[in-house]
Write a protein that binds this DNA or RNA. Structure first.
Length: 240
DNA sequence: AAGTATGCCAACCGCAGCGAT
DNA sequence: TATCGCTGCGGTTGGCATACT
């Protein structure tokens, strides 16, 4: 709905940013603040689309951005959060100060998938996490594809809450005497009582997106998703 | 040394959500 | 209620760098 024409507009620059463009963008945002991405390029005298400006700012120019050298702690956190959240890179990035969703996504795809693959390699029964490689560039005469393997990685989802943005965890929890059941027409999953009751039989139950997503779907906002994940994860650790 | 394969990451694409009208 | 416009997000691609043969 209402998709912007973006970079397809004739005359707009694409591709790598020059130092001059970076400076123009950074200066403009420093003076006027973030937002208004649509009109920003014109005001900042940039021949870029707003989307491109926003991306460049968010992933590269923004103050406090850490680049490279992802520590073991950060890596561990990424793996854990990915187990909980799936491919919700912005949420994961939110837990790693100075890291961007793009960087974490790239790091996951280039480093961690490989690591996890090799860790799983001795177990031939385990599903192989397929790294998407440059399909087009590295075309070889490929044999017929093997039967598809089911991969137990949480499905990337956009979480749309059944609650309005103005709903809060507290307000919902205060109604917990009577199990809260949202409008069933909006649900793509079986309704569960509010607050959710966690029944964990083992790691698979916790790490599989099938368990955690219904929980996420019941929260009122991303921040409460994350707060709840802290609680869930603590409970999970106690079970081990 | 040359050609090819792979790694890596910045940037783009297109969809979905949401507020405004 | 329907539509528009903006923004944010995740998936994907392009292209340079490096490793390998």
């Amino acid at each position: 709905m209402g998709r912007s024409p973006c970079c397809s507009k004739v005359g707009l620059r694409r591709g790598p940013w020059s130092t001059k463009e970076d400076t123009l963008l950074a200066n403009y945002i420093t003076q006027h603040g973030e937002g208004q991405w649509r009109s920003l390029p014109k005001k900042a005298d940039l021949m870029r689309c707003g989307k491109s400006c926003r991306l460049r700012w968010m992933n590269y120019l923004r103050p406090g951005i850490k680049r490279g050298n992802i520590s073991e702690d950060e890596e561990d956190l990424i793996v854990r959060l990915h187990g909980l959240l799936g491919n919700r890179w912005s949420l994961i990035a939110g837990r790693l100060p100075g890291r961007t969703d793009n960087e974490i996504k790239n790091y996951w795809n280039t480093h961690l998938l490989k690591k996890l693959n090799s860790a799983a390699a001795p177990h031939k029964d385990l599903p192989h996490l397929a790294t998407k490689q440059h399909k087009k560039k590295h075309k070889k005469p490929t044999p017929p594809p093997p039967p598809k393997t089911k991969v137990c990685v949480p499905k990337p989802v956009r979480v749309s809450s059944a609650f309005s943005r103005s709903s809060s965890y507290d307000s919902l929890a205060s109604n917990s005497d009577a199990a809260y059941v949202p409008d069933k027409e909006h649900l793509s999953f079986p309704p569960v009582p509010w607050p959710p009751i966690f029944e964990l039989d083992g790691p698979d139950d916790f790490l599989d997106g099938g368990f955690i997503l219904p929980v996420l779907n019941h929260s009122a906002s991303i921040s409460s998703d994350v707060n709840m994940l802290d609680q869930v994860y603590d409970e999970y650790l106690q079970l081990l």
